[in-house]
């Protein structure tokens, strides 16, 4: 079981994802440089957070044209597991692997803080280890996390249970007050129709050790391991 962390110029959470897999999950993991063009031997790809290409033009817009992205698309089309975190989520929407877009935060400010997530679907490769009703405490750190999709798209997402995480209070109430960035329907994470590509704004790799303030991010990684082991 091998993980790959894709490194674009300007990625800056690549190290965090790498260390979580290596030091906390104790599974094999490698960095994958954006100019590489083979993804043989990987079971799960992580597109990490950061500011790929400075997030100039639009977040993720330039990164999606990196040589590796064509391989990522093919990997995903073959059913491979892809987790896009923060900037990685933005890249996945730009690349068309996930529906919707991430706009500037409603009040235009960058937010770094812990948020609480309600898990809407526990029957996915990324959430199968999470008990229904469990509220996850995981940090966000972004300036462009305001999820948007048109009405038709939203209805389709809901119908197909593609909305995975929603911003909620610590008690699990989805409310405006719990919404840090103005995201439509409090959406914090969505999955592809086939269920193998997840994008989320919160950083599960930052919630993997007690000394960092939460270990709830491990539920997501544990789900992945669970799923891969059963394959």
């Amino acid at each position: 079981m091998k993980f790959g962390v894709i490194v674009f110029p300007g990625s800056n959470c690549d190290l965090d994802a790498y260390h979580l897999v290596k030091d906390v999950l104790r599974k094999p993991v490698e960095y994958i440089w954006h100019q590489q063009n083979s993804l043989k031997g990987y079971d799960c790809l992580i597109l990490p957070g950061g500011f790929s290409y400075g997030d100039y033009l639009r977040c993720g817009a330039i990164a999606r044209f990196s040589p590796i992205m064509q391989e990522v698309v093919e990997f995903a089309n073959r059913g491979g597991l892809v987790l896009g975190i923060c900037n990685g989520f933005q890249i996945l929407t730009e690349a068309g692997l996930l529906p919707g877009v991430l706009l500037r935060n409603q009040d235009l400010k960058f937010y770094c803080q812990f948020v609480h997530l309600k898990v809407e679907n526990v029957n996915t490769p990324f959430t199968n280890f999470i008990e229904p009703q469990k509220i996850l405490k995981i940090p966000i750190a972004h300036g462009d996390g305001n999820y948007y999709i048109d009405e038709k798209g939203l209805n389709s997402l809901l119908e197909k249970k593609q909305v995975i995480f929603r911003y909620a209070t610590a008690e699990g109430v989805v409310s405006d007050e719990a919404n840090p960035n103005g995201a439509l329907f409090n959406i914090a994470g969505v999955i592809s129709e086939k269920g193998n590509v997840l994008g989320m704004m919160p950083h599960p790799e930052r919630a993997g050790e007690t000394l960092l303030g939460s270990t709830d991010g491990l539920f997501i990684f544990q789900s992945l391991l669970n799923y891969l082991e059963k394959l």
């Binding site: 706009l103 500037r104 935060n105 009040d107 235009l108 305001n146 103005g182």
Partner: peptide, 10 residues
């Protein structure tokens, strides 16, 4: 129809 927070702020 797309929210433009920068425009609104200005």
């Amino acid at each position: 129809g797309i929210l433009d927070p920068q425009g609104q702020a200005v």
